[in-house]
Amino acid sequence: MLVAIALGHLGALYLLGKLLAPDLTGGIEREVVAAFSLEAPPRPPPPPPPENEPEPDEGAQGSPGKEAIPQPVTAPEPEIALPRPSPAPQASSTGAADRSGARESGNGTGAAGGGPGTGSGNRGGGRGGVAVTRPVHISGRIDDARDYPVPPGGRQARRGTEVIVRVIVGRDGRARDCSVYRASPDPQADAITCRLVEERLRFRPAQDAAGNAVAAPFYWRQRWF
């Protein structure tokens, strides 16, 4: 009760002070508040930035090891020599000889030596070497429009077209074995061209490396204007 009565008297005095001397009571309030005010402690300074640390040394490469060279090992020679079977011939033979195969000499069949037979090689007494020059057209012409019949639609239907035929020029300079290499729109005219090339045209035959005349192909182009 005494404490309550004392607090009541203090409150009454404070109110009278506010009414009669407001400046005095305001200063007392500020001092009391300042005495009991709590300020936040200052923040600690930030830590310094970390220094760049050097990367750890991974170590240098070690020296390579020495190359190992295996000791040579040879198979021992057999005490008993093994017999070596003779190779079988590549082609069968009906003769009575005890050997056969491609040998330069011997009494078997199939010897691969030089001979007087004919053939297309660079040696031998026969004809038929490889051509090193081409046949050359030297005479004969196919330029008469009357040799070709009028196609359906008139001659203008064939105008501006062409046919290429292939022939074999023999050693006598004549063309044989004609065939159509590139056809025209008129099959009848292509067949007539083959016949006229074999009948009318003459050629200088091709030659081999020795200057002998040999058969060789030749291509003839026939155009219609």
Rank of each mutant, 00 (worst) to 15 (best):
E53W: 04
V73Q: 00
F36M: 03
R43D: 04
P42D: 08
R30M: 09
I69H: 07
P47H: 06
P44R: 07
K66P: 10
A68L: 12
E58G: 01
E67H: 00
E31L: 09
P42M: 06
P70I: 07
G62D: 15
E79G: 11
P64T: 01
G62M: 09
G26D: 12
R43G: 07
Q61S: 14
T74H: 01
A34W: 04
I69C: 10
A75H: 06
G59C: 02
E31Q: 05
E77T: 15
P41R: 09
Q71N: 04
E55G: 01
A75T: 03
P54K: 08
A68R: 06
D57I: 10
L38Q: 03
T25F: 04
A40P: 14
A75Q: 06
D57E: 00
G62W: 01
P64K: 07
R30S: 13
G62R: 02
E39R: 15
P64Y: 00
L38G: 10
P45Y: 04
A21C: 08
S63Y: 01
P47Y: 04
P44I: 02
P76R: 03
P44G: 03
P70D: 14
P44H: 09
E58H: 05
I69L: 15
P46V: 10
P42V: 08
V32R: 15
P41G: 10
P48Y: 04
I69G: 01
P44L: 11
E67V: 13
I28N: 08
G59F: 00
E29H: 03
I69F: 03
E79L: 13
E29M: 06
Q71A: 11
P64D: 11
R30L: 07
G65E: 15
V73K: 00
E67L: 01
P78R: 11
G59E: 02
G59S: 08
K66C: 04
S37H: 09
E53S: 10
A68V: 15
P54N: 06
A21E: 09
E53N: 00
P45N: 05
E58Y: 08
Q71G: 08
E67Q: 13
P78M: 07
S37F: 08
P48A: 14
S63K: 07
I69Y: 02
A35S: 08
A40F: 06
E31P: 02
A68W: 12
P54E: 10
S63W: 03
A75W: 02
P22D: 04
Q71Y: 13
G59K: 03
P64F: 12
P46S: 13
K66D: 09
A75L: 13
P49L: 11
V32A: 13
I28K: 03
I69Q: 09
E53M: 05
T25M: 05
Q71L: 10
A75R: 07
D57K: 03
P78I: 07
P72G: 03
P78L: 12
T25Q: 10
K66N: 08
I69W: 01
G65V: 05
